[in-house]
């Protein structure tokens, strides 16, 4: 077996660990707000839109994320609009946008007929192939997210608890909601590289629900969720590399083991 310390000398492993940790912070922190607002499947929906957008990008022979980022951001705003204006529940709005994304992906893949292998790599992720630019983007986006949470912590807590009461406190809920879904959209696009389109909602849901088993306050929920997310990603990357397993799937399994452990701890005795 490879010496575990040798592992960390590889540039691609270092990039995977750095980008993975920052993406984990993004997913697990945003996930707390999404899970508590029963919008946890927004990650899944936007991931499906990412699938469609990547297909469009491949079809146009351009870097897929250049196409995916604006489309997924617009889709996130579209979900918000559907909830607000069409009087739909969040899950229905997510379902509509999600199926549209998948349909678009299948149509473009079918029309182009030649990039199934490339598309497959986005379905299951490939964190070990992450490049320097993507590492920088994940760090920058994490910094933005932390700044947003620091500046809007009370607003986010208020809206997450009850949006109507938040409005009566003079909070511009529409603006905060937009910021939240746009950050989620960017995070989802970025995280497809880590765990892939199929598994992204696990990274948005499992660390927060792990934290919900253990936390004794809102602040501690965010902290525990982030720690669970980062630890799962680092352990997942290391274990997958040593045991020659798919990285995205290994990360999700580690996340799930943390959730099981936290559940067992809460219900001990």
């Amino acid at each position: 077996m490879m010496d575990i310390f040798d592992l960390f000398t590889h540039g691609f492993i270092q990039r995977a660990l750095i980008a993975g940790s920052f993406i984990a912070v993004l997913c697990s922190t945003l996930g707390v707000f999404l899970v508590l607002r029963r919008l946890s499947l927004i990650g899944d929906g936007l991931a499906h839109v990412t699938f469609g957008s990547v297909a469009v990008g491949l079809f146009l022979r351009t870097y897929p994320f250049y196409v995916a980022i604006p489309i997924v951001m617009l889709s996130a705003l579209g979900i918000l609009k559907l909830v607000e204006k069409a009087r739909l529940y969040g899950d229905s709005a997510i379902g509509i946008v999600s199926s549209l994304g998948i349909a678009a992906g299948i149509l473009f893949a079918s029309v182009a007929g030649g990039f199934n292998v490339d598309l497959f790599s986005y379905l299951f992720g490939n964190i070990l192939a992450i490049n320097r630019a993507e590492v920088s983007i994940s760090i920058a986006l994490s910094v933005v997210l932390v700044a947003v949470i620091l500046f809007f912590y009370q607003e986010l807590l208020s809206i997450t608890f009850d949006e109507e009461s938040a409005k009566a406190s003079g909070i511009r809920t529409e603006r905060i909601n937009k910021i939240l879904v746009l950050l989620t959209a960017l995070t989802v696009v970025l995280a497809t590289k880590l765990v892939g389109i199929m598994l992204i909602s696990a990274l948005l849901i499992l660390p927060p629900v792990t934290a919900l088993q253990l936390a004794r306050g809102f602040r501690s929920t965010i902290i525990i969720s982030s720690v669970a997310g980062i630890t799962s990603v680092i352990l997942g990357i290391v274990v997958s590399f040593i045991a020659n397993l798919p990285t995205g799937a290994t990360i999700v399994i580690v996340c799930f083991i943390f959730f099981l452990a936290s559940f067992a701890y809460r219900h001990r005795g």
Binding site: L36, R37, L212
Partner: peptide, 11 residues
């Protein structure tokens, strides 16, 4: 609170 979550993690 229509959206009140009985497991909301705030004190």
């Amino acid at each position: 609170l229509n959206t009140f979550n009985p497991h909301f993690p705030a004190t």
